[in-house]
């Protein structure tokens, strides 16, 4: 079991290293010239060329990657011994954004908590709602609660988040004025404003996801409720609620945990549309801004962080399998 954990952890590290190569290559194949982006509209070819040398962009790709990767692990100093103003970028250094005049790591560390709050709240909402409705639908298979829930979830699943988000914004904020316009404050600064701002983004993200989990949970429950060990549980005289939750739901949890882990991992990389609609300064909005500005260091930084979330989520899901299914522990 410990061997499996170590092996799985090792393969995660290998994947992260491979990932960094991919992301770096992405940086170099993009049509924008990073040297051109270091100065404004008044740039002369001489300045661009000087900056290119200063940033080491004239060196071979392998060397550039080494410098970049070393920066992530050990930090790096820009303009070192080149006459211009030196500045440091402590580890993990993901580069320096010339258009925003800030370290990429700082930009991301500011944005990540917003996205984490968004993802965490939405996750709790959609899992609670999805699991509950899925179990209800499965236990009433073929009868009206099932039909109604299946219908609603199909519609909800079909609605894109930009539609749901905009509708909520227009109806509840613009027309009915039930909520103020979104204005993000961290919960430590102003909890009430935080909650008032976050409630609609949470609902928006959770809405479509919950529908998926309703259907997934229903399918799983319908399947496990037909298993022999459910009959055994009933034959022992267990209460029906124990049979349903402790035996049937637990047995059908594996695919739900898989999907939930990956969904959460993806969401932590930024909910681009929802953050844009509700003006949340999270990873998604930072990503959009940096793409619009062709801010390459930020784009690569966000890509790396988002992909890391997914790889880590995968790892966590694999570890959870062992918690859920004892048969995996021995394999």
């Amino acid at each position: 079991m410990l061997g499996y954990v170590v092996k799985r952890f090792g393969s995660m590290l290998v994947m992260l290293a491979g990932l960094s190569v991919m992301v770096f290559l992405l940086f170099s194949v993009l049509p924008a010239d990073p040297a051109r982006l270091t100065c404004g509209k008044t740039c002369t070819p001489d300045v661009v060329e000087a900056n290119r040398q200063r940033l080491g962009l004239d060196k071979p790709l392998v060397e550039q990657y080494a410098v970049w990767a070393k920066g992530i692990v050990a930090g790096r100093t820009f303009n070192e011994g080149q006459g211009a103003a030196e500045f440091t970028c402590p580890a993990p250094c993901l580069g320096y954004s010339f258009s925003q005049q800030e370290n990429v790591t700082d930009l991301i560390t500011e944005a990540v908590p917003v996205t984490i709050w968004l993802a965490a709240g939405a996750f709790v909402l959609w899992m609670t709602f999805g699991l509950t409705t899925g179990v209800i639908a499965a236990l009433n298979r073929g009868r009206w609660p099932d039909v109604v829930l299946q219908g609603i979830s199909l519609v909800a699943y079909s609605l894109p988040s930009f539609f749901v988000g905009l509708m909520l914004l227009i109806l509840l904020i613009v027309q009915m004025s039930l909520l103020p316009y979104p204005d993000y404050y961290p919960p430590s600064e102003d909890l009430k404003k935080f909650l008032v701002t976050m409630v609609l983004p949470w609902v928006t993200v959770a809405f479509t996801s919950a529908a998926f989990y309703t259907r997934l949970t229903r399918t799983q429950m319908v399947e496990t409720m037909g298993e022999d060990y459910i009959r055994t549980a009933r034959a022992k005289g267990l209460a029906e609620r124990t049979v349903t939750v402790k035996h049937a739901l637990r047995a059908g949890l594996t695919p739900i945990v898989t999907a939930a882990g990956l969904d959460l991992g993806i969401l932590l990389g930024g909910a681009i549309i929802t953050e844009q609609i509700f003006n949340l300064p999270g990873m998604g909005r930072l990503a959009v801004e940096s793409v619009v500005d062709s801010d390459l260091p930020v784009i690569t930084g966000i890509t790396l962080v988002a992909a890391t979330f997914i790889i880590v989520a995968n790892f966590v899901v694999d570890m959870l399998y062992m918690v859920i299914d004892p048969r995996v522990r021995l394999a």
Binding site: E227, D228, Y229, T232, A235, H247, R250, A251, D325, P326
Partner: peptide, 16 residues
Amino acid sequence: AMIFQDPLSSLHPFYT
């Protein structure tokens, strides 16, 4: 009480 035919599928795989 009942003893079922296939003891592997009749016992819950996730509980001791």
